[in-house]
């Protein structure tokens, strides 16, 4: 049976457009709003990434750090993250949700229990920022056995040989980091160059769904729309920060922003 993530890519392919993947932090700025935000943006997003907050992130830029900080300040726990997914999935059973975060939280609860909770709440995949190949091989296999996608990352520093190995063991989705940067950095490489690298990965196995993330905003998304999927994260976290500052409803604001992003890549 095909995974919901694979089905989402299939649908986008039929519609000849890239998948729009959003990233927000679970519990930003509280549990209720987080669910409202997910419900609102899921009308336009094809796959939802949900960050589970960690207070010592080594690859997140300022925007995501702010979101994480807000969520943790409001006392968000890993259990709440699973509750958020469960509630969201009740109304949106077919919309894929990917959890993204740092390994220590998984390590503390235990890989097995983490995956049981993923399964129970309806999580479709996970990305672990600080758990690279080949160290992640066992965990990735455990995910596969539970029909949960483990999403491998590839970066501009990844060698061709390593790319091949990563692609070979990857599941339905591979994440290409557009440039040397933490999340939310300004796009410092041309779209052309990013797509050149991206296509190198695609050629290794054209059947794999490869998405591009880091530095994607309403300004940069158009130039990259030939990719199979585009992840927008910091730009959304920034929108939440701004709307909270202005006293606006973050869910409404985000819904508009994601609608706008979607329109740009149709």
């Amino acid at each position: 049976m095909k995974s919901k993530i694979a089905l989402a890519f299939q649908k986008c392919k039929r519609e000849k457009r890239p998948a729009l993947i959003t990233y927000t932090v679970a519990g930003d700025n509280n549990i209720q709003n987080s669910i409202k935000i997910m419900n609102a943006i899921s009308r336009y997003a094809d796959i939802l990434e949900l960050g589970f907050p960690h207070n010592t992130p080594i690859a997140d830029g300022g925007q995501i750090q702010s979101s994480t900080h807000r969520a943790l300040k409001n006392g968000i726990k890993l259990n709440n993250v699973f509750q958020i997914v469960k509630k969201f999935k009740k109304n949106n059973p077919n919309k894929p949700v990917i959890l993204m975060g740092y390994y220590n939280l998984i390590y503390q609860i235990g890989e097995k229990k983490f995956l049981i909770n993923c399964k129970k709440s309806g999580v479709d995949g996970c990305i672990v920022v600080d758990y690279p190949f080949p160290e992640n091989k066992n965990f990735a296999e455990k995910c596969r056995k539970k029909s949960i996608n483990f999403i491998q990352l590839i970066s501009p520093t990844t060698s061709k040989d390593r790319m091949r190995k990563i692609i070979r063991i990857s599941h339905d989705m591979v994440y290409y980091i557009s440039m040397l940067s933490t999340t939310g950095g300004k796009l410092k490489v041309s779209a052309k160059k990013i797509l050149q690298n991206y296509n190198k990965i695609r050629r290794i196995n054209p059947k794999k769904n490869v998405v591009i993330g880091f530095g994607i905003t309403d300004k940069t998304i158009v130039a990259l729309k030939s990719a199979q999927g585009l992840v927008c994260g910091s730009f959304l976290c920034k929108t939440i920060s701004n709307s909270l500052k202005m006293g606006h409803n973050p869910a409404e604001k985000l819904s508009k922003v994601v609608y706008n992003l979607k329109n740009k890549i149709l």
Partner: peptide, 21 residues
Amino acid sequence: KNFMYGGKFGGNFIPETLKKP
């Protein structure tokens, strides 16, 4: 081989971008 001492300390829990450097 995973750069762990005593099988449980150390290692390289790093983002993919840092693997090569």
